[in-house]
C-alpha cells in the first residue's frame, strides 16, 4: 500500500473534549508564532519550497529498512524537517503533513488534530532543532551524534505526550500506557535516529551549502537551545519517573485537579467547580512542584552558561 498509518496518530473519540481543546489552543498559539516568524524571515520563494518539503517528508516516510522479524524502521521526520528547514518552517511543514494524513487518509482525527500536531510536529521540531543548535560549530561527529540523540528523544517525547493525553482523557491507565508506548517507541525512535543521522550526513556531504549555520541571530538560537533543552530534560526526567512510579504521577495530577478536569466533559466541571488546591496536602504538593521546577530551571541555566562559555 502507498500509505501505512503510524502508531502515534490519535483518532477522534480517544481524547476528551477538554484535552483536545487545550491541545488545539497550544498548537494554534505556536503555529501563529511560526507563521509570523516565517512571514518575516522568508520571501514568497519559501512557500513552494515548504510545500514540496512537506511532500518530501510525507514521501520519505515510505522509505523503510527491514530490522528483524518482519518489523521495519522508518522515518517520522519531525527532527529532520526542523534541522534542514529551520524550526518554524519545520513546524509548518509537519503541521501540513499531519493535516493531510488526517484529512485524506483518516490517520488521526480532526478534533484531536491539535494534539497530534503538538505531539508529532511541534515538540519534535523543538527538540530536534534545539539540540542541534546546541552543538553549532562543533565537529561533524559531535553534531551527528547529537542529532541522533535528538531524533530518538523527539519520538520519545511524542510518545510520552500521547500517553499523558490519553491518560488525562481517561482512555488509558497510566501504569500500562506509559511503559507500553515508551517501550515500543524506544525501538521506533532508534530507526528514526539512524535514518535522520545518515540522511543528514549524506546532505552535509553532498550539499553543505543547504544546511546554513548562521541564519538565526545569536539570541534566537540561544532561545531554541533553551527550549529544546527544557523539553528534552522533561522527557528524560519524566519518562523513568512515570514508568517507575505511575501512581506518584497520578496522585500529583489528582491533587492538582487535572484528573477530574480532564476526564469529565466541561459542562459537568463548571457548575460544581471547586478550587482543588485549597487542601493542605494538595498545597504542599504544589509547593514541592514549584520547588522542583525552580531546581530544574537553575540546572538548565547553569548548563546553558557552561555551554556558552565553552563555545
Amino acid at each position: 500500500m502507498l500509505y501505512t498509518p503510524a502508531p502515534l496518530h490519535i483518532p477522534d473519540g480517544f481524547l476528551s473534549i477538554l484535552v483536545s481543546v487545550v491541545c488545539w489552543a497550544i498548537t494554534i498559539i505556536v503555529i501563529g508564532f511560526a507563521i509570523s516568524k516565517t512571514n518575516k524571515a522568508l520571501g514568497e520563494k519559501q512557500i513552494p519550497l515548504m510545500g514540496v518539503m512537506a511532500a518530501f517528508i510525507f514521501a520519505a516516510q515510505m522509505i523503510n529498512f527491514p530490522v528483524a522479524g518482519g518489523t521495519s524502521g522508518h522515518l517520522l521526520g519531525g527532527a529532520l524537517a526542523a534541522i534542514v528547514l529551520g524550526p518554524w518552517a519545520g513546524m509548518l511543514v509537519m503541521t501540513a503533513v499531519i493535516a493531510v494524513q488526517a484529512l485524506l487518509f483518516q490517520d488521526g482525527g480532526l478534533l484531536v488534530m491539535g494534539a497530534n500536531i503538538l505531539n508529532m510536529g511541534l515538540v519534535t521540531a523543538a527538540i530536534g532543532y534545539g539540540l542541534y543548535r546546541s552543538v553549532a560549530g562543533q565537529s561533524k561527529t559531535v553534531k551527528l551524534t547529537v542529532v541522533g540523540i535528538a531524533a530518538w528523544l523527539s519520538v520519545m517525547a511524542g510518545a510520552l505526550l500521547t500517553s499523558l493525553q490519553l491518560w488525562l482523557s481517561g482512555t488509558s491507565q497510566l501504569e500500562i500506557v506509559i511503559p507500553a508506548m515508551l517501550g515500543v517507541h524506544a525501538l521506533i525512535g532508534l530507526g528514526e535516529a539512524l535514518i535522520t543521522v545518515f540522511a543528514l550526513a549524506f546532505i552535509i556531504q553532498t550539499r553543505p551549502d543547504l544546511i546554513g549555520e548562521g541564519s538565526e541571530s545569536a539570541k534566537a538560537s540561544r532561545n531554541w537551545v533553551f527550549a529544546g533543552g527544557i523539553v528534552s530534560l522533561l522527557v528524560v526526567l519524566l519518562s523513568p519517573l512515570a514508568s517507575a512510579d505511575p501512581d506518584g504521577l497520578e496522585r500529583v495530577a489528582k491533587d492538582l485537579g487535572f484528573l477530574s478536569v480532564g476526564q469529565d466533559a466541561p459542562y459537568q466541571v463548571i457548575p460544581d467547580y471547586t478550587v482543588p488546591f485549597l487542601g493542605e496536602t494538595a498545597l504542599s504538593t504544589i509547593l514541592a512542584g514549584v520547588v522542583g521546577i525552580l531546581v530544574v530551571g537553575v540546572i538548565i541555566v547553569l548548563i546553558a552558561r557552561g555551554m556558552k562559555a565553552k563555545s
Binding site: 513552494p48 519550497l49 510545500g51 514540496v52 518539503m53 511532500a55 518530501f56 514521501a59 520519505a60 522509505i63 523503510n64 529498512f65 527491514p66 530490522v67 528483524a68 524502521g73 522508518h74 522515518l75 529532520l80 534542514v84 530507526g191 539512524l194 535514518i195 535522520t196 543521522v197 545518515f198 540522511a199 543528514l200 550526513a201 549524506f202 546532505i203 553532498t206 550539499r207 543547504l210
Partner: peptide, 23 residues
Amino acid sequence: VLWRAKVAGNMAGQLFLRSYERS
C-alpha cells in the same frame, strides 16, 4: 541492520536533495 539503516538514510538524503532541486 546498521548498514541497511545507512542505505535507507542515504535514500532519504537523496530524496531530500532531489525534492529541494525540484522545488
